[in-house]
Nucleic acid binder design. Sequence first.
DNA 1: AAGCCGACCAACCGCCACACG
DNA 2: CCGTGTGGCGGTTGGTCGGCT
Length: 246
Amino acid sequence: MEGTLGVRKGAWSNLEDNLLKACVQQYGEGKWHLVPKRAGLNRCRKSCRLRWLNYLNPNIKRGEFKNDEIDLILRLHKLLGNRWSLIAGRLPERTPNDVKNYWNSYIKKKLSSNKEDVNARPKERVIEPHIVIKPQPRTISRTSPWKVIKEDESGKKKCIVTSETCAASSLECNINWLGTFFEDNGSFDENVGTSKENDTCLLGEQDVTPLEDFNLDKEHFSLTTTEIEDFLREDQSWSDVVDLKW
DNA sequence: AAGCCGACCAACCGCCACACG
DNA sequence: CCGTGTGGCGGTTGGTCGGCT
């Protein structure tokens, strides 16, 4: 089976798998455009990358999804929508493709059957359409608008940003996303978002009790002064801190 | 035994974001 | 600023397999 440019398509043979494995073990992941040549494979770069990430990578777990994994998928999908890579990132050893396939086969079916059950019962609450705002990875430099405030009298730590720069950047998008997140968990606080009165955006002082269901707690959104200082180091990115805290 | 059908999942395709010259 | 190359993502397809008639 070959494509229009003579590139092989379809199922992978054991030989091809072994060649790809050997290549990745020798040169490491990445530089996928070089992989077909290095491995001696008549496959396109995308095909090689996909085969490794979804099947050959030794760090992936196969087999049935456990109940806690399913629960997490449901919650994360509600929060993030079809952002399979983000969802899979929270599921150790699962690939985005696995999660997507699982959703498309098992969960969608389950939800549609539940929907039928719900339709059979009288409506208790109207659920508004859910708007998903994509969180964007970003690096914040020393000159970023973020400012650190020390603990207040109640012991809460705050991180603020001026609304001027907040509005100028897509940071507002993240604030809104966080607001959506809390709102969705029933604990949205007006303080999350821009405030024209004090010219600041506030994070990290939310009552996030409902997140306990999510194996998260207040700590995940209220960084300590030291952590924020680390965050502002040039070699740290948003994802570094979030991964640490999540 | 043969044919049909649905479920599952590996793989492909098209698009987008980003880096770089 | 623009064009090109690359990596990565989500949607979709199609092959395979098992159950049912």
